[in-house]
Design a protein around this nucleic acid. Structure first.
Lengths: 260, 260
DNA sequence: ATTAGGAACTGGTCTGACCAGGGTGAGGGA
DNA sequence: TCCCTCACCCTGGTCAGACCAGTTCCTAAT
């Protein structure tokens, strides 16, 4: 029994570095978790499950105090663990933000110059797949509030599109699609979309630029297609959402290819 | 200047995971460190420099509160950083202990069975080198208090040696040599010695067992050699300490070899 | 010399307060 | 109608002091 306690202590000691509180608890077979361990598990599960998406704020420390009956110093110690694991970032006054944990594992290939047509076409083809899947899951999982926000963004895009520069048009378009990605509540799709749009913004902008030069304005079908995407989300039709989101990008791609 | 601030924030954000506070401060070129950063640097330097050796206790949290003018919750947050980096381990009521950070990088070769003579001779040869270097640095760096402790341990070894089992004799011998390693204040020697003695304890015990079987007691020279080591430390004579410590092990090794 | 008990010291947690930075919304002016 | 500024509220960061629970050390008794 002394040996048992020694084993227990040595095991705990071997676990002191970079192990979450919940992993320690499960390895030492504790019958129940402390409140700190419960909070640690709760936050990690929200992040890993996609319930919290990159860019979203965590509940505030004071909210977690109330919710878990912990002191703020105890909450802060748990939050520090997550921050050190790279799951969140905090800044004074600025809320704790869920991080894109994919960022440190994936370095998307160095972008070719943004105005290379062949490269732009490939970026569009990747978008077709990515946004189709995002729309599929968004139709299933978007909250009602998220659908409202997407509609508002869609309306804003329409109302403001006349007065925008090409750069602003490109940004608005990506904001719309990023909102769909986030409402998919799929942590891999959300994370990858963020990285993809950031990395290949120049190519995406170049696509829009070429298109506007050829047609002088947004091609007629684009607006209707955005609306179709939105309607498929609103009707909670995953297959339809995937179909129209993917076709929207393929349509734009094919318009572009025909400029040769 | 907005861009400057954005860069600063992005840099800080990229540093939020597994970076010590002092590294963050140096990368962001801060003119001065916060008290938490000062404490972080102070503790890391004590550990990395060997000023604190594996197994030794850190100053208590309350002592650090007084010393740095920080709140205990702030001290605890810094201590948690070190714990997560694997530099220390803490347990309720039990002090914060400096860890052997070498342990996770080095797996000494699987020990042969402890009673293999050829293997035992090699372990002794490695000891000769290791303990010579330890004595060399201990002669330079041991504190007066450490010398007193070593003398007490040496005296205890003499007084108690008659009544001890072979196992206890082996343990006492290693305790003596481990104290010398620790008083070298050389973090690599201290760390490696701990790992080495733990790993090869069976071989070291086997050496002593063989020796006692052949002679019926400690060979006459052993006691005098331990005293010579101690005297060289006390006289702060590094070359002499290295010489007698190394010769002590070689002497024992050669006695053993001649049993064939 | 050993063992047991108590005191002191340790880490862990809590309560409540205050400081400093960021975000949001409303109102006013161009 | 849009943009800018200001104020308020919410956020994270830090502090002081208290209490709980575990460990260590010292002293006294056997």
């Amino acid at each position: 029994m002394g040996d048992e306690r020694t084993k227990e202590r040595l095991l705990k000691e071997s676990l002191t570095k970079n192990e979450s509180l919940t992993k320690k608890a499960s390895l030492t077979k504790k019958a129940s978790l402390t409140k700190k361990e419960q909070l640690d598990r709760y936050l990690r599960q929200k992040i890993i499950s996609g319930s919290l998406i990159p860019g979203q704020a965590l509940p505030s420390q004071r909210q977690l105090v109330d919710q878990f009956g912990l002191a703020r110093s105890s909450v802060r110690e748990v939050v520090q663990l997550l921050e050190l694991d790279g799951l969140i970032s905090t800044a004074q006054g600025g809320r704790s933000i869920c991080r894109n944990t994919m960022a440190k594992y994936i370095e998307l290939p160095v972008e070719g110059i943004g105005d290379n047509l062949a490269f732009q076409l490939q970026v569009m083809e990747a978008r077709a797949f990515l946004e189709g899947e995002a729309a599929y899951f968004a139709a299933q999982r978007a909250t009602d509030q998220q659908l409202i926000e997407i509609e508002k963004e869609f309306d804003k895009m329409q109302l403001r599109s006349k007065g925008l520069t090409t750069l602003d048009k490109a940004k608005a378009d990506l904001r719309f699609h990023m909102m769909i990605a986030q409402s998919s509540h799929h942590v891999l799709i959300t994370s990858f979309s963020q990285l993809f749009y950031n990395r290949y913004f120049n190519a995406i902008y170049g696509v829009l630029n070429r298109t506007l030069i050829k047609f002088g304005r947004y091609p007629d079908g684009i607006r209707m297609q955005h609306e179709q995407i939105y309607q498929a989300l609103r009707q909670r039709d995953p297959e339809q959402a995937r179909k129209v989101a993917s076709e929207h990008i393929i349509y734009t791609r094919n318009l572009l290819e025909s400029t040769d």
